[in-house]
């Protein structure tokens, strides 16, 4: 069974997991991957996807009147001040 670096995946996914859960996942995820690996027996060749899925783009103009959602969006923010979303300082001064 494939060896999976759960800690690395959790870091890539920005997901804090406990040591206990990590142990469980180290068992579960390779099991699930072993199951999905049966697709390697299928004949499908890797090629650029074509077919039913395609995007229908709208005209590149104003999708809605500017500002009509602003109030609602601000209300949903965990940390809002004077109409701005307040975020953590990410540049250190030293």
């Amino acid at each position: 069974m494939i060896n999976v670096d759960i800690e690395k995946l959790a870091e890539l996914s920005r997901l804090a997991i406990s040591a206990e859960e990590k142990k469980e996942l180290e068992k579960e995820i390779p099991e699930i991957l072993a199951f999905v690996e049966q697709i390697s027996e299928a004949a499908g060749e890797l090629k650029k996807e074509t077919g039913e899925h395609y995007n229908i783009m709208r005209e590149d103009d104003e999708p809605h009147e500017s500002g009509i959602y602003t109030e609602e969006m601000l209300k949903a923010m965990p940390d809002e001040k004077n109409g701005y979303l307040r975020v953590r300082k990410i540049i250190a001064q030293d």
Partner: peptide, 25 residues
């Protein structure tokens, strides 16, 4: 985590891209 794995460099061909090919079948 599974999603991150099947899309990660080195595994995406064998998992994600292969799965989209199988989807075509």
């Amino acid at each position: 985590l599974i999603g991150a794995f099947v899309l990660s460099s080195g595994y995406a061909d064998a998992y994600y891209r292969k799965a989209t090919a199988v989807r075509e079948l």
